[in-house]
Design a protein around this nucleic acid. Sequence first.
DNA 1: AAGTTGTTTTTTATAAGTAATAAGCAACCC
DNA 2: GGGTTGCTTATTACTTATAAAAAACAACTT
Lengths: 296, 296
Amino acid sequence: MKPNSVFKKAFNRTLQLLDAGDADIGAISENALRTRIGVSRTTVRKVLGELQVRGIKASGNGPTAGRPIQESDYFPDPETTSKRQHVEEQFMEWMLRGDTQPGTLINELQLARQFGVATTGVREFLIRFSRFGLIEKRQNSGWLFKGFTEEFALELFEIRVMFELRSAVLFAELPDESPLWTELAELKMAHQQLLLEIGRRFHDFSRLDNRLHRLINRAAPNRFIDDFYDVITLIFHYHYQWNKKDELQRNEAAIGEHLAYIDALFSADTHEIERTCLRHMTSARTTLIRSLQGAA
Amino acid sequence: MKPNSVFKKAFNRTLQLLDAGDADIGAISENALRTRIGVSRTTVRKVLGELQVRGIKASGNGPTAGRPIQESDYFPDPETTSKRQHVEEQFMEWMLRGDTQPGTLINELQLARQFGVATTGVREFLIRFSRFGLIEKRQNSGWLFKGFTEEFALELFEIRVMFELRSAVLFAELPDESPLWTELAELKMAHQQLLLEIGRRFHDFSRLDNRLHRLINRAAPNRFIDDFYDVITLIFHYHYQWNKKDELQRNEAAIGEHLAYIDALFSADTHEIERTCLRHMTSARTTLIRSLQGAA
DNA sequence: AAGTTGTTTTTTATAAGTAATAAGCAACCC
DNA sequence: GGGTTGCTTATTACTTATAAAAAACAACTT
């Protein structure tokens, strides 16, 4: 049986739009709302039906009848995530926070019970996750957890450096009129802004980090590099979510490195690009490895 | 329900061993046979039980009773492959031979019916296959086939060249006493041998190709590079299995390139390594692209 | 005591089934 | 005739179920 998390999420999203007084949600067509929320019309209709059942006023202005939205109308967050996402979160927690040792055998059935899902869900997750290089399938048996180790970090960064240098050099070769330069300029300003407010907004850095590296990769898209960046994103997302030590200082330093790197890109000086890029990569690697050791 | 393909394959394998007069299969312990065939003891016992039921003579020499093996004792090949492998083969055929167009939406249900398996099997395969960069998941909907196109080949080879150059240079830096040098020497001889018999054995080349590139990667193992090589292996395996045009000439030329590349590795001359490596990569890329165009 | 086989328990590979969601069709509207 | 909504059909995201295979246990044998 399929859960109705898509509907619940769409419903919450619609309430948000109404709450924000955003246009006449209740008056626009089903199709318009559909593109707005990003679900099928079937689901939109279900949302609209539910609004009506609950007697919620669906139009910002105009004489539409109905009561205003209450906080309790929103579905609780956990009900709006798919099983798939749920498994991902649980697994990452199990792996990174529980002190799961390298060499541990992963048991699908056991994890399924632990996470409260059917085995298929765990299986599919593990297959998807296997490309991150942390687990390995044993024929007709479970999976082997290879460990979130220093070795892993070193192999990861070896590739990351290759890819990043390649993309950075290609970025610098972009013609002056490429819109990516404008985006880079905007990103630079965002960095400077964040540096000013670093005291209270330091955890916003990881979003900037992601944006910068993905922007650079867009100079010459390659699906394998994109995929690899997904690995990095996921690893960092979960790892740093639970590893907050020295976050402010780390991020402040990293912003500085980014700014130097960005300036080097603008200068189009290959040598300088390599230098600043490597400096940033090296410090990112050191940070990750240190935090791995700290956890062990 | 789980199919018993593991048992059938193990049974066939045991018959082979018996047929080859290979030791006293019937006399050795269950555990010894187990490691020999690479299945659990449970399966070994099932095999032994079946031998007995059929009254097959399980011991090469000695007074053990029973009849000799007949050709008909072997299970037919298709029954010895797992569903998973079956789906892979069918899908690759569907994708590469049927003229599946870029942009086609993949329908799990339809493929499952077509391949004669449950949807789960197709789903799991597609998840596994998605890391090859040829398909992409659409949220709550099917998969998009991006096409086995020239663009794909170019992106694939861009990465392949990066990885290969990196590994080749590291290989050359191996200490003289590394056993990998011996393996390389053996591989060189195998190439020379094949060149002599190229007329009748030209399709043996792909195995040598695989061995060479995997050997070079072993100089400095990196799990992400290994994984990437799996992509290449699979793609080439299926693609060239059905694309035999000019195979002899292609392979003969490639052997020559390999030999030059191997000699360059022995010389440890970085510049020469890069030259020969690039020459081989470039011609491999050209071959792939030409054959893609030929198929379209 | 380490190796062997018989037996029981656990886990995997697969199929079948179902509510939720998406996609398609038809009638309507202006 | 493009955009709307009501209705139907197809497909996905799951759950439950089960034989095969692996793993664990226990008794026996040198």
